[in-house]
């Protein structure tokens, strides 16, 4: 952890954090107004800001974000539960691992967006197809990290369990799963990030609401400000979700 800084040191530290984005915005502003090269369809920051304010006042912005967020949450939670259960079973049982290995290895390299056509054929363009894509995107990172985490539990602890004749139940719950927890939490963070990426992809193809819809709608309306606004929102919401998970992870792993 970083050492505690004095108050002026803190200010400097935060200034450094925001300096780069401020520079980017200033440069952007400069190019839009004074640049010798005019970039078409590149609205200045204040136009995007105005667009954002209008959409906030309409409530449209919040509607799009919350629709996407709820989709992600739903798909992610289903994926997390499924991946954790399957991951623990695979991690603890080498026969089950062998049994599932080949299918999982073939499914793993197929990117979630490759499933979109089939998902639409199967589930139509309603909620289920989007949930399926999100589920798929979140599932593998959580599964693989859970299995890896269990396999990589320090062998010295397993030796300790032999010396003290620790029973299977306590070995699993007190030694193996806590030992795998850092890796599991990493999987959950990557999984949530993926789920967020997948909702955008799914909504861009078939949706009437959501940030992905904002993107594709902006393109068809030739509204570059809408497109950029949607992109920024995707980035900001993604970062906030990751931050929240980081805090939760730290809480859970209070020993480290």
């Amino acid at each position: 952890m970083r050492a505690k800084k004095s108050v002026p040191g803190q200010i400097g530290w935060w200034a450094l954090y925001f300096a780069f984005p401020v520079l980017v915005v200033l440069l952007w502003e400069y190019i839009c107004h004074f640049g010798s090269v005019k970039i078409y369809n590149m609205p200045a920051p204040e136009i995007i800001l105005k667009d954002a304010f209008e959409k906030i006042q309409d409530g449209i912005l919040l509607k799009h974000i919350s629709v996407s967020f709820l989709r992600v949450l739903e798909g992610f939670l289903i994926a997390a539960v499924a991946a954790l259960i399957l991951g623990v079973l695979i991690g603890l049982n080498k026969y089950f691992e062998r049994f599932t290995e080949l299918v999982l290895q073939i499914l793993k390299p197929i990117p979630p967006i490759a499933w979109i056509p089939l998902a639409i054929l199967w589930f139509g363009i309603g909620e289920s197809s989007k949930l399926y894509i999100i589920f798929y995107g979140a599932f593998f990172p959580i599964l693989l990290n859970t299995v890896d985490g269990i396999h990589n539990v320090d062998k010295r602890y397993l030796e300790l369990a032999r010396v003290y004749e620790v029973d299977k139940w306590r070995l699993t719950w007190k030694m193996i799963l806590p030992g795998a927890l850092p890796s599991i939490l990493t999987g959950i963070r990557v999984g949530l990030g993926n789920a967020w990426v997948c909702v955008v992809a799914a909504e861009m193809i078939a949706a009437t609401k959501g940030v992905g819809y904002m993107l594709s709608n902006g393109r068809s309306m030739s509204r570059a400000d809408d497109v950029i606004l949607a992109m920024l929102l995707i980035g900001i919401v993604g970062k906030i979700m990751d931050d929240i998970l980081k805090v939760i992870s730290k809480r859970i792993m209070k020993w480290s």
Binding site: R156, Y157, E159
Partner: peptide
């Protein structure tokens, strides 16, 4: 053991 081998989460 040479290392204390205490479980860090307990």
């Amino acid at each position: 053991f040479q290392d204390h081998r205490l479980l860090p989460w307990l």
